[in-house]
Design a protein around this nucleic acid. Structure first.
Lengths: 212, 212
DNA sequence: CCTTGTGAATCGTTTCACAGCC
DNA sequence: GGCTGTGAAACGATTCACAAGG
């Protein structure tokens, strides 16, 4: 398969969200232009993004909202549910464990882990926090595909090593430190402080950073 | 001023974090190669990133860790503190209000707002939650530069409109919906579900997405 | 000799523009 | 007539490669 840009995948995710709303509000078809406006991009961009995966529209008509939703869900791999574990049940880990936006999209939180005995045993939205020592055993049993790391920076690399060694093939890192993972493991990082720093740069150097 | 790519700014933020650690561990100088390794990039990339803003190194020697830290802090606009308000004191808003990573970087949370009376008055790390109705009045008084939105998707655009109209010039959006802001307002979005979906795509289409 | 700083080359993404089809 | 799908052109970011300087 061809290489797909991350920016393309990110936009597909946005398109899908808009299509779901659009379908709920009773529309049956949509044009690339309407879809573009929803995601702050251009109609050509929308068509190009989709063209990597096939042709889903009808010339002169646009796209069938329902069919396109299904197609994008398939492209993103969302026809099936994904199992997620969260490591680190501090403020952010706990917030994510209870975040509705995950579950509604087919991501099931099947385990939450912490090394602090005071947190072990507490319940977060139906899932109880388990000791970090059980990680390997649980991964072997539950086979989660994705691990979300919400541990302190110092602990993050060690946890990433442990979960990937135990078979997890995708990591979402909220710890404010870059992680190295072995070839073949998908990795993404969300760094809240960096996001604020990019905004600070934008405010300081008015206009140097193209505003989205 | 020249246009600076967002990716450059993001890397500068990473370099700075590493430089701070590196300085703390007693090193006085660093080469572009060492800095590159820390951030998962190349020495040429590091030098190019810095070259947009000046020349900070000595040929044959590398960079003075302390001087480069100061230079990057200045580039990012971190010599001065920034005031931040958080709108929405649900799970994620509350977690961010108490997140140490913000305060240690010079971002001061000066206000937290919620429309739910049950949450108003509760204390989050020393800042008490105030009613959303007070937003405009407080912004006029406290002059926060940045607003972090942790409200539900349906409410996000209205809050963005209110805070920008009241004078906030940068918005960090955690609500899972794209926002339109007026020209001249810096905007960034963090969408947790999208991040998981990018990972799901990576897992589904093994290798199509270049793994970072 | 080592490492920076930077023009030039390469690579990748977005935009353009239009042929093809409903 | 209107809108998609897509090569080609334009643009932007990264990598290369080397001259310059400690």
């Amino acid at each position: 398969m061809k290489h797909i840009a991350e920016s393309t995948v990110r936009r597909l995710s946005l398109y899908l969200r808009f299509l779901e709303e659009y379908e709920a509000s009773g529309h049956a078809t949509i044009s690339s232009g309407e879809l573009a406006e929803s995601g702050g991009t251009t109609s050509a961009q929308v068509r190009k993004d989709l063209s990597f995966f096939g042709s889903f529209g009808k010339r002169g008509m646009g796209y069938t909202v329902k069919d396109l939703s299904i197609a994008i869900r398939e492209i993103l791999g969302l026809q099936r549910p994904w199992s997620v574990i969260i490591v680190g049940a501090g403020k952010i880990g706990a917030a994510l464990a209870q975040y509705r936006g995950f579950t509604t999209r087919g991501f099931r939180v099947v385990g939450v882990y912490d090394r602090d005995p005071a947190r072990v045993g507490t319940k977060l939205d139906g899932v109880s926090v388990r000791p970090e020592a059980e990680l390997e055993r649980d991964i072997a049993k539950l086979k989660p595909e994705i691990a979300v790391l919400c541990v302190p920076a110092e602990a993050a690399q060690a946890i990433a090593d442990r979960v990937t060694k135990a078979g997890v093939r995708a990591v979402l890192n909220f710890a404010p430190t870059p992680l190295k993972v072995t070839e073949g493991v998908a990795m993404r990082a969300v760094n809240m402080a960096t996001e604020l720093e990019i905004l600070a740069f934008g405010l300081t150097n008015g206009g140097a950073l193209p505003v989205r």
